Simulated assay, not measured.
Amino acid sequence: MSETLTQEPAAVPAVARDLDILDQLMKPEVQKALTELVDNLPKLAEMVSQLIKAYDIAQSLATDRVLIEDLKGGFEEFVKPIGEKAKGLAAAAVEASDRAQNDTSTIGLFGILKMLKDPQVQKTLRFAQAFLDVLSDRQKQR
């Protein structure tokens, strides 16, 4: 008798659950959704198959230590020179700013003419002229 008492509470929720599922299946919107699912099962199976393949590939790539190290090394080789160049340009800009703030002399006409002979000034002026020419050409094309 004690066995039947312990089995009844477990059986009652199972019956209630079955009735609840049957009630759900009787609803027209649920039947319509099930019909659509059954009609599209071949497509769904193909999609799931492709997703599983993609997941397997992604999983194998994500756990491949050699690939990860190669990507990391390649990224570092790409970024390191850019970072070093940026640091060098930033240091030069800070140093130039300090020099300009400490120099209180006036630059006159002869000072400008003397600066024009500097190769860096010439290079900068050629760049500025080429840049303005490109902008002018692009504006004419519009």
Rank of each mutant, 00 (worst) to 15 (best):
D56K: 09
F78E: 11
I52L: 13
L44F: 08
F110S: 13
M47A: 06
A91L: 07
L5N: 12
P119C: 06
M47V: 07
M115D: 15
S105E: 12
S136D: 15
S2Y: 12
K117S: 08
L113Q: 10
A91W: 00
L5M: 08
D118T: 04
Q101L: 15
E76T: 09
L44N: 09
A128W: 01
I68A: 09
S2I: 03
S97R: 15
M26I: 03
R126W: 05
L116M: 11
Q101M: 10
D64T: 03
M115P: 02
A100L: 06
P42A: 09
E3F: 02
A58P: 01
E8L: 14
I68R: 04
F78Y: 12
F131R: 06
V48T: 14
Q141H: 04
A130D: 15
V134A: 11
P13D: 15
D118V: 04
Q101D: 06
G88C: 02
Y55P: 00
M115S: 15
Q120V: 12
V66F: 02
A58Y: 07
A100N: 08
R138N: 10
A91E: 06
V15P: 01
E8D: 09
L71E: 04
V30K: 02
G83A: 10
S105W: 00
K27Y: 04
T4W: 13
F131M: 07
A100F: 13
S60Q: 14
D98R: 11
D18C: 13
E69Q: 14
L132D: 14
D70R: 12
F131H: 06
L51Y: 06
L19I: 14
K87C: 01
A62I: 01
E95L: 13
M26S: 09
K80H: 07
T35C: 01
R126V: 12
D18Q: 15
A54F: 11
Q120L: 12
G74K: 12
A130S: 14
A91V: 02
R138D: 02
F127K: 11
P13M: 14
T6F: 03
I21P: 01
R17Q: 13
K87W: 03
L125V: 14
S105L: 08
A58N: 13
A11K: 11
L19Y: 09
T4D: 13
A96C: 04
F110Q: 15
L5K: 10
R138G: 13
P119D: 11
Q129L: 05
E69W: 01
E77T: 09
K32A: 03
S2L: 10
Q129T: 11
V30I: 00
K140T: 12
K123V: 11
E3S: 05
A11C: 03
I57D: 11
I57C: 02
L71I: 00
Q50K: 15
R126D: 07
S97F: 03
A45T: 14
A54I: 08
D39H: 03
S49C: 07
A14L: 15
T124V: 05
A92N: 07
L61T: 00
K117T: 10
A33N: 00
D103H: 08
A130V: 06
L125N: 00
K72V: 01
P42C: 08
I107E: 03
L132N: 07
K80P: 01
T6A: 10
E36W: 01
S60M: 05
I112R: 12
L116A: 09
T4R: 09
L113R: 04
D133T: 12
L116F: 05
A90F: 07
P81W: 10
Q24N: 07
E69G: 01
